[in-house]
């Protein structure tokens, strides 16, 4: 059994600024770990440290008890896949070609690669767009293609690790839920998953555990149920919120108090031309 991906006391400096200061995190097989925090708290930096794309100024990151720096790029690529934010391409690759790049490390036949690519695009609901040109896709469509690429990379591999940086930031609610459910299913099938999210409620619904970062430090970590307390939410994000339990899911839900929002009573006017309304 894999020991997963472990970060201990990670430090990253950028000039005089400390981007990360002694952060611990464990991405364990079978679970989804959410990383949350305000803008600039160090979420993406932590993800880069765990993926091996960032030089550490202190601490260590190990996969299965072996330091990441001791892994070759090739061996590491067969174990873990990374999805970064906002990937643009200057060349007109097709969606299916981009997904197929994820399979390069497996050195398999073009036909086998194409089959996996089609399967992954289908999983993220992009099967119809396989032949479209990547740079012409919308932001949400690109995000799903990149997720398909990451999934393709670890498809069929042993003890996979999946690191995702805001995978649903540009997705509509339907696709966001579909994608996060897909990711959770991967974890249940044995993958170790880390996902950086901004939406507290989506995180509560789909993550098993969470790390809250504030100004480069780990503010709190633990199970979602333990972490979602009004004081902790206020400490991490600086907002007042009440925490309730989701009526059907049973997981916590955050309902923020909106300051500066006008308090005039709003009633439905029945003048809207909404189909749902009429039905």
């Amino acid at each position: 059994m894999s020991q997963g991906l472990v970060a201990a006391g990670v430090e990253v400096l950028a000039g005089p600024r400390r981007l990360l200061d002694g952060v611990d995190a464990t991405v364990a097989p079978g679970l989804v770990l959410g990383v949350l925090g305000a803008n600039g708290a160090g979420k993406s930096t932590l993800l880069r440290c765990l993926s091996g794309g960032q030089r550490l100024h202190g601490g260590r990151v190990e996969l299965d008890g072996r330091a990441l720096t001791a892994w070759s790029a090739h061996d590491l690529a067969r174990r873990r896949a990374v999805m970064s934010q906002e990937i643009t391409l200057a060349f007109p690759f097709r969606a299916a070609e981009v997904v197929a790049m994820g399979r390069d490390v497996w050195r398999e036949s073009d036909r086998a690669t194409a089959r996996v690519a089609d399967e992954m695009l289908d999983l993220v609901g992009m099967a119809d767009c396989a032949q479209r040109i990547y740079p012409t896709l919308s932001g949400g469509e690109r995000q799903r293609v990149q997720l398909a690429r990451a999934l393709a990379q670890i498809h069929g591999g042993r003890d996979p690790v999946l690191l995702l940086d805001e995978p649903v930031s540009a997705l509509d609610p339907e696709h966001a839920i579909r994608v996060l459910a897909l990711i959770r299913a991967r974890a249940r099938a044995g993958a170790a998953v880390l996902v950086v999210l901004h939406d507290l409620n989506l995180a509560a619904a789909f993550c098993d555990q969470a790390v809250f970062l504030r100004a480069g430090r780990r503010y709190a970590a633990g199970s979602v149920v333990d972490l979602y307390q009004p004081e902790i939410i206020a400490g991490v994000f600086g907002i007042q919120a009440s925490v309730v339990t989701h009526p059907s899911g049973g997981h916590p839900m955050v309902i923020p108090v909106y300051h500066g929002c006008d308090t005039v009573e709003r009633r439905p006017t029945h003048a809207l031309t909404s189909q749902a309304c009429c039905a």
Binding site: R78, I87, G102
Partner: peptide, 20 residues
Amino acid sequence: RSLNALVLGDSEAQYLGIDV
């Protein structure tokens, strides 16, 4: 193949197993 991966970006290529 490596150049294809590099088109995604240096770090992405690294993640894909290329010695960038």
